[in-house]
């Protein structure tokens, strides 16, 4: 795609730069679906920065391949913009729209009246359109990656938070598992749990998986490993917080958890644990 236009693209644009910028910003500000998280000043800033880098890059003659060094500064700027906007809570489409919305004011300057022949103008529009699509796509992709990085970091932080093993009653400890149960996490859970069992002389440990988003065969393996280790310590495990959709998925996967005591909720598990410990309770309504 290296169709030549008689008048270089950058010359067609540089004359009308200010006009294009003003109109572009005006359009963006009047867009009702615009994310309110992006302050006007930063929108103005990014827009003029974009135009500046855009002109600079196309002046060097490459209007096809944004992976080339001429576009490096632009890519850098867009990556930063994506990152900022991701943390400002913009949507990916919002962020891509930033670039796509430049088409209208830009193409308005490339009409034949501006001294261009008809074919020249439409070739230029075509070329610029493809170019802006690429830049828009690049921005949306970077945005997505930034957001994933944020999510991953948060997930990691969550995993790294110490695993609380709670003594809920004499002889009963409980762990509310939150997040993905990978090998590293299982190891931490197991060590903390076994230590607590020893320290408290507990006979029952409750593993609550309400906060585990996905259960697959690996997660199941990790849970079973924890259960076996607990048994080796002379304690029994109860797994609670198995939501109905997780229960169904476990069955479809063909995982056999028949020799593990499971309860729907942590409350049920505690009740069971207490009953096994010989505790019984009565409610005295007159004292409520």
């Amino acid at each position: 795609m290296t169709r030549e236009t008689a008048v270089p693209l950058h010359e067609m644009i540089s004359g009308a730069k200010e006009e294009i910028l003003t109109e572009w910003i005006k359009n963006q500000l009047s867009d009702k679906s615009r994310s309110k998280g992006v302050p006007e000043a930063s929108l103005r800033n990014s827009s003029s920065e974009f135009i500046r880098l855009f002109e600079e890059a196309i002046t060097k003659g490459n209007v096809d391949d944004i992976e080339k060094p001429e576009w490096e500064e632009m890519r850098h700027m867009l990556a930063e913009l994506s990152a900022t906007r991701a943390s400002q809570g913009s949507t990916p489409s919002d962020t891509a729209k930033f670039i796509f919305s430049l088409k209208e004011p830009l193409f308005a300057r490339l009409t034949p009246e501006k001294g261009q022949g008809n074919t020249e103008a439409s070739a230029a529009v075509w070329q610029l359109s493809l170019l802006l699509d690429k830049l828009g796509l690049y921005t949306a992709e970077t945005f997505q990656r930034t957001r994933e990085a944020i999510i991953r970091r948060q997930q990691k932080e969550m995993l790294e938070m110490s695993t609380p093993v709670i003594k809920v009653w004499d002889g009963v400890v409980a762990v509310p598992l939150i997040g993905t149960l990978d090998s590293a996490r299982t190891q931490i859970v197991m060590e903390t749990l076994l230590q607590k069992i020893v320290d408290t002389g507990s006979r029952i440990a409750i593993l609550d998986i309400t906060g585990v988003p996905t259960v697959d065969t690996q997660t199941a393996q990790h849970l079973m490993k924890t259960v076996s280790a607990t048994r080796l310590m002379g304690a029994e495990c109860i797994i609670s917080g198995i939501r109905p959709q997780i229960a169904q998925t476990i069955v479809h996967l063909g995982i056999d958890i028949n020799d593990i005591v499971t309860k729907a909720t942590m409350a049920d598990a505690i009740k069971e644990a207490l009953a096994r410990g010989g505790w019984s309770f009565e409610r005295h309504l007159e004292s409520v």
Binding site: V215, D216, Q245
Partner: peptide
């Protein structure tokens, strides 16, 4: 449905692994 979402995600997890 929530059940089917969970099933699909678990299948994806198995195959990706």
């Amino acid at each position: 449905s929530l059940v089917n979402q969970t099933k699909i995600i678990s299948a994806a997890s198995e195959l990706a692994r």
